[in-house]
């Protein structure tokens, strides 16, 4: 499915980086402000889908060369690792840890749950993009 429009292509070229930035911001900041892995994942997916619509399947494959299933595998693996690490320390599953990082006067509050959220993001992107591209491929070029 492709919409052949110069305006759309130009717009998408501008918007896609912004969407990705927004998603990363939402994922990292989700613990303290609206956002989080699910939202970030869906935002990324919408951005990628518009790109696919504007530029077609081939261009999309150049942008997104891996099969989405590897994203799902990676995301699930990441969340599982975060979930299991506390077990090794004798803590309950998924017990979160946090540290405060000082970077040039700025305090950065790092929570292990954020990593978990990143895993969620990756899974959501993998699943959503995977489903849409798969169904899109069925339609043919």
């Amino acid at each position: 499915m492709r919409i052949d429009s110069l305006i759309l292509r130009t717009a998408v070229r501008l918007v896609l980086p912004l969407t990705v930035l927004l998603a990363i911001y939402a994922a990292l900041n989700g613990h303290n402000a609206p956002g989080g892995g699910f939202i970030a994942g869906l935002v990324t997916t919408v951005g990628l889908c518009t790109y696919r619509m504007a530029f077609g399947e081939r261009a999309f494959h150049r942008l997104f060369p891996v099969h989405p299933r590897w994203l799902v595998v990676a995301g699930l693996g990441l969340t599982l690792v975060v979930a299991i690490i506390p077990l090794l320390a004798g803590e309950p599953l998924l017990r979160s840890a946090s540290t405060v990082l000082r970077l040039g006067g700025q305090e950065l509050h790092l929570v292990s749950a954020t990593v978990f959220d990143l895993g969620v993001l990756v899974v959501v992107v993998g699943v959503a993009v995977g489903m849409i591209t798969r169904l899109g491929e069925e339609l043919g070029p």
Partner: peptide, 30 residues
Amino acid sequence: GEGRNIVNVILVDFRGFDTLGEITVLATAA
């Protein structure tokens, strides 16, 4: 939970195990 966004803290901390299950459901559906 070390976070201010209560919804997100519930999802990734208090009920993190549910979320783990949920993304497994997502993966299974895919």
